[in-house]
Simulated assay, not measured.
Amino acid sequence: MTDPADPVGPPPTDAPVTRREASRARRAQSAADAGAAFQTHMRAARVEFESQVAHARAEFEEANARIAQRTGRNLILAILIGLAIGAVVLASLLFFKWLFLVFALAACSLGAFEFIRALQAAGRRIDLAPQLGAGALLLVSGYFSPLWLHWVALLVAVAVVVVWRLLGQMFARDGRTYGAVLSDVLISAFVQLYVPFLGSLAMVLLAAPRGEWWVLAFLIVTVVADTGAYVSGLTLGRNGRHPMAPRISPKKTWEGFAGATVVALAAGVVLAVFMLQLPWWAGLVFGALVLGTATAGDLGESMIKRDLGIKDMSSWLPGHGGVLDRLDSILPSATAALALYWLLTPLVTT
């Protein structure tokens, strides 16, 4: 039996401890509930965010697919590759301009390689090694040699590829017709004139006093003109497109050319005043002439590709096509920029 003197229940000293433990338990439970609610809220927010990202990505990919279907370009890859190439060009021209010669050698050699491979696939007999060797000679000559010696280098380069082709055909003895051999010889000379020689004129300009700024200026005008044509062709030509040269390049439109004209002239004025120290009206001349040669170069390469039955010279630059597909408007623009340098340099303001 229980002693009546014994207290009923736990000792008095245990009551405060029990209350503290109960309070701690309630606080712990409240913290656990709050933590669980926070985790639930975060999970819901993450699911919502992932849903929004997936939706935005789907819409972007759909828009990019429509643009690619309409223009034949992968927009994202085109932008990323363009930015990477632009960074290399800027670094070479702004810090050590001779580095741009290395970049030009690589670009023109790859462009010539693509062109020769396309011609060979079409049945033309073009000799790769002498073409690349003579082309490198022309580019190096353009930067290091006086102008008269550069013209001698051009004659030597053309003579090398022509004689090499004739000797190759003579040793082949495969009964190739006279007309086919003549075509091979003329096309061999054209390859030298089209890619290495036009590229070497940019090297002549680069070697001139402050020539790096002129090279950068005509490259900027060419790029912004292409971008302006791309954007305005997509927007202004949405409800009605007016092809510029449907038999040569169906995707070139007058709407795109209008946009290219506006941005090329604006860029020419800005570059003339702030970079080249020329009067503003000289910038209009600069922008207009570079735009004209760039457009002619673009259409000219399109005509060559159509004659060869190909869409791009290669697929080395995703979103752009081949290297020569990026050089098509730049190469003839180098000629215009060099001519304008000689004509407009006396107008430079100090």
Rank of each mutant, 00 (worst) to 15 (best):
D3T: 05
T235D: 02
G82P: 07
Y341V: 03
I304F: 10
L132A: 06
I116C: 00
V273N: 06
M303C: 06
V158T: 08
V47S: 09
A32I: 10
G211P: 13
V223H: 04
I220A: 14
L83H: 03
R238C: 08
W316F: 14
K311M: 08
V290R: 04
W214V: 04
W214F: 11
S141R: 08
V8P: 00
G123D: 09
G179C: 01
R73K: 11
L99W: 13
W213M: 11
L182Q: 09
L139E: 02
D3G: 03
A296K: 04
S329P: 07
G268M: 10
V263D: 08
G319T: 09
V47A: 14
S145P: 00
S232M: 15
D325N: 03
Q120G: 15
A136C: 14
P12G: 11
G256F: 09
Q29K: 15
T2E: 13
T222I: 08
W98G: 03
P16L: 04
H320S: 01
F274K: 07
A157M: 06
G287M: 04
Q192I: 13
L119F: 12
V89Y: 04
V204E: 07
A5P: 00
G123W: 03
V89D: 04
A78C: 10
T40P: 00
V191W: 06
E48A: 15
L331Q: 12
S109N: 12
G287R: 08
R165S: 14
V204T: 05
V263A: 06
L198I: 06
L137Q: 01
G133H: 02
T349C: 02
Y143M: 04
P4F: 05
L167K: 04
S183I: 09
V191N: 03
T253H: 09
E301F: 15
A28E: 02
E255H: 05
G175Q: 10
H150Y: 12
A78L: 11
A15G: 12
A28N: 08
G259Q: 11
L166N: 02
G133A: 15
Y178T: 10
L205Y: 00
F115L: 15
L216S: 09
A260C: 01
L75S: 11
A36D: 13
M170A: 11
L201E: 13
I187L: 13
L198Y: 01
A266H: 04
V162E: 07
E212C: 00
L338G: 00
G292I: 13
P4A: 05
F218Y: 15
I220T: 15
L206I: 06
I79G: 10
L119Y: 09
P243Y: 10
L344C: 08
A129S: 08
F60D: 05
Y143C: 07
T349Y: 08
G322Y: 03
A180C: 02
L219F: 12
P12E: 15
Y341P: 06
T335C: 11
L198S: 13
I79S: 15
Y143I: 02
L149G: 09
P12C: 04
H320L: 13
W280L: 06
A104S: 14
P4N: 08
L265C: 03
T235L: 14
T345L: 11
G199K: 11
P196N: 08
R124E: 14
H55Y: 07
S23I: 12
T253V: 05
L166V: 14
A225G: 07
V273F: 11
W342N: 01
R57I: 04
L271Y: 03
V273W: 13
L166D: 05
P346V: 05
M303A: 15
A31E: 10
F218C: 06
N74H: 13
G175W: 07
